[in-house]
Amino acid sequence: MTTARNRSAAPPRGTALVGARLVLPGGVVENGRLTVEGTTIAGLGGDRQPGDVDLTGFTVVPGFVDLHVHGGGGASYASGVAEEALRAARTHLEHGTTTTMASTVTGEIDEVCRQAAVLSELVEDGVLAGIHFEGPFISHNRCGAHRPDLLRDPDPTLVRKLVDAARGHARMVTLAPELPGGLESVRMLADLGVIAAVGHTDSDYVKTLEAIEAGATVATHLFNAMPGIQHRAPGPIVALLEDERVTVELINDGVHLHPSVLDLAYGTAGAERVALITDAMGAAGMGDGLYPLGPLQVRVENGVARLVEGGSIAGSTLTLDVSFQRSVTVNGLTLNQAVQSLSTVPARLLGLSDSIGSLEAGKNADLVVLDSDTYDLVAVMRRGEWIVGADRFTKAHAA
């Protein structure tokens, strides 16, 4: 990784970035020009001017949007400590995630409500885009890295309690629709404008279709923590892949999914229905060692996170810049397809397409600069401020 660490730096008003490959909604533009004014993208195109910042040899894509992330930098969103949440968000921001939705893990209902209150303040401060409750309303048989004794049926009253604790900032709830109260809770969430996601489920094909009809619109880390595809029992995976109303989350870290399985999902759903996520826990951006994940302990070895007790995969240590790089170099996605899955699709799902998710005039100046040959991350800008990598351009590449 070639990322330089430096303090945030705002470009001068009206600064233009020139010479880069720009990945725009209409296609890839070589030797492009993008103007940043304050916190927004002021325009695209135009002639090179004195003082423009030269990005020749680099590729610029919109900032990444992560729908599902539990922590990073040695910190967890489930800690209920604002300073930890800030550290986690900053870690992923330095790897290109300019919009983050914080994910909790299974815990006592009152404790998760307390965590939601802390995270809600960070949403109101503009640090986070919302809260995703993953658990406790999930299947014992597919609980993964969630503590079994704390799981609960998705009683609509309990689900509503969590949503209310987020003070209007709950964006998504993952649940197993086959459990008592599951379909009722899906309908309630849809009525409240909160995304109902099917995940950590033992549901069959028919029950999953019922959940989609009730209003479920997301598959939580598809393929993981759910029954596999059987030729006489297609299960939830086929139901979620085949319905155009459903956005499917995928973890492209080389651990959770074989590359051919990702290819299968893209071939069925298309990039316009795939959201690449990290599902990262506190070890993201850190080294091997022991880390907490809610009330459980996780051991990370060679970058792979597993529960100390039982050995189940426990989230990932992935960052979205690595996901982008793998998507293009391993899976062979086009740059536009990768941008769709890492920026455009999740922005649309969150209802934020008017301000993020693509490089267009009037949207936030949330940018990721990549090496055009290796796709290593070089710099990140959020709302017009360089987060990392500013020295690469303000000094070495000024035209």
Rank of each mutant, 00 (worst) to 15 (best):
Asp354Ile: 00
Thr91Asn: 08
Gly43Glu: 06
Lys207His: 10
Asp376Val: 11
Thr394Asn: 10
Pro236Ile: 03
Gly71Ile: 06
Gly294Lys: 02
Gly311His: 05
Pro180Met: 07
Ala4Tyr: 14
Gly182Glu: 03
Pro154Cys: 05
His397Asp: 12
Ile109Pro: 14
Ala265Gly: 10
Ile251Glu: 05
Leu86Tyr: 12
Ala42Pro: 12
Val81Lys: 13
Gln337Thr: 09
Gly126Thr: 01
Phe393Pro: 13
Val380Asp: 01
Ser327Phe: 07
Ile313Ala: 03
Leu240Lys: 01
Ser355Met: 11
Gly43Ile: 05
His95Glu: 00
Pro292Gly: 09
Tyr266His: 14
His70Arg: 09
Ala361Ile: 06
Thr334Asp: 05
Thr247Glu: 03
Gly270Tyr: 07
Val330Met: 05
Arg5Leu: 15
Pro227Lys: 03
Glu108Pro: 15
Ala265Lys: 07
Tyr205Trp: 11
Gly130Glu: 00
Gly19Tyr: 08
Gly303His: 09
Gly215Arg: 01
Thr278Pro: 15
Pro236Lys: 07
Ala165Thr: 14
Phe324Trp: 13
Gly332Lys: 02
Asn364Trp: 06
Met172Gly: 12
Arg87His: 12
Ser185His: 04
Ile195Glu: 01
Val308Lys: 13
Cys113Asp: 01
Pro62Glu: 00
Thr220Gly: 04
Thr15Asn: 10
Pro136Met: 01
Phe133Gly: 02
Thr394Pro: 09
Glu84Ala: 06
Val255Thr: 11
Gly107Gln: 08
Leu179Arg: 12
Gly362Ile: 08
Asn252His: 13
Pro180Leu: 02
Asn224Phe: 00
Ser341Lys: 06
Glu84Gln: 15
Val186Tyr: 04
Thr106Asn: 02
Val261Trp: 10
His70Thr: 02
Thr59Pro: 15
Val198Thr: 10
Thr98Phe: 09
Arg160Pro: 13
Leu320Glu: 03
Pro136Ile: 04
Gly57Phe: 06
Asp373Cys: 11
Val206Asp: 15
Val345Phe: 03
Thr15Tyr: 14
Gly351His: 05
Ile237Tyr: 06
Val105Ala: 00
Asp66Phe: 08
Gly270Phe: 04
Asp204Phe: 05
Thr278Asp: 00
Ala283Asp: 03
Ala129Gln: 05
Leu293Thr: 11
Asp373Gln: 14
Leu290Gly: 07
Arg326His: 10
Ala129Glu: 05
Val248Trp: 00
Ala170Gln: 01
Lys395Ser: 14
Gly26His: 14
Leu276Gly: 08
Lys207Arg: 14
Leu17Tyr: 11
